[in-house]
Structures are given as structure tokens and as C-alpha cells.
Amino acid sequence: MTLTYKASQLIKEHASEAFPNECVGFLYGYEKEAREINVAIKVPNSKEGDQRRRFAISPLDYMKAEQYADKNGLDFLGIYHSHPLHPAIPSEHDRKQAVPFFSYIIAAVNENKEVTDITSWRLSEDSQFEEEIIETLIEQ
């Protein structure tokens, strides 16, 4: 999977500014032989209460995300979120709520609000997360 430098920068900035809470956003691009993610868009974390260990996306924001992909000729390819003070490894909670096909990008954030790691995961046929290698693409 390739992730453009611009999209990865947006994810890092969002993860940093949301600290100590989790941030969340949508990922778009093109589903080719190798998946290309070149657009990341911030979404409000709709989780009620403590957002330091949880994120959620409202159903209406999800509907808008599908419409955005449709209108712009993009494929809706996944979700990113941050793990403040935790490694960029999906939790059991992440896995239980995950859907097939989507890439789940996770950004680990340290106490200095710095992103220390970015990983990406997809569900396998037996509903287990498998890591996918991210190749950063520098746009011309």
C-alpha cells in the first residue's frame, strides 16, 4: 500500500493536535493492484465521554464519506486513528469493530505530542488483523 507524504503529514498533524484524545479520519485513493491512499480527511471524534482511549464516527459522517468518494471519483479505502501514549498496534476493541476491506492506519503519539510510529492493518478472511506495509509516496 502506498500513502502519499501529504496524507501522512495530515494524519500526523491531526494525531498531534488531538492529543491526549484519539483523532479519527477517512482515507481515500485508488484501489489498484497495489492500494494507493492519497487523501486523508479529518472527522470529528463522536465518542461521548473520555476520548483518550476511544474513537467513534457518527453514522451521518459515514454517509457523507461514501458520498464524498462517489462525487470525487475516489475509492473509500479506510480509517485512520491515533493511539495516544500507546503503540501503533490494533487493540482487541479495534478488531471487534473493524470491517473487511478497509485499511486501518494507526498513529502512535508520545507525551510530547510527537507521532513516533504509523502502521496499517487489514482484516483477514478469518477476521484477524494483518499488517500491511506502508510505502510513502512523495508527490511531484
Partner: peptide, 30 residues
Amino acid sequence: EDINVLDKEETKVESNSTISIIPAIAGGAI
């Protein structure tokens, strides 16, 4: 409209109705 605030699964539909299936996207570090 969420069908949970309508008549849930029994909500009536018309020929021009649009139903959306929406996965509940959520998660968290722990």
C-alpha cells in the same frame, strides 16, 4: 433518519426510498 427513531425494522418504505447500511465505525487503544 436512523430506523431506531422510526418503526425500526418495520419502518415502511416507498418505491423512491433510499436505505443505507452503515457500519458502526469505532475503536480505541485498549
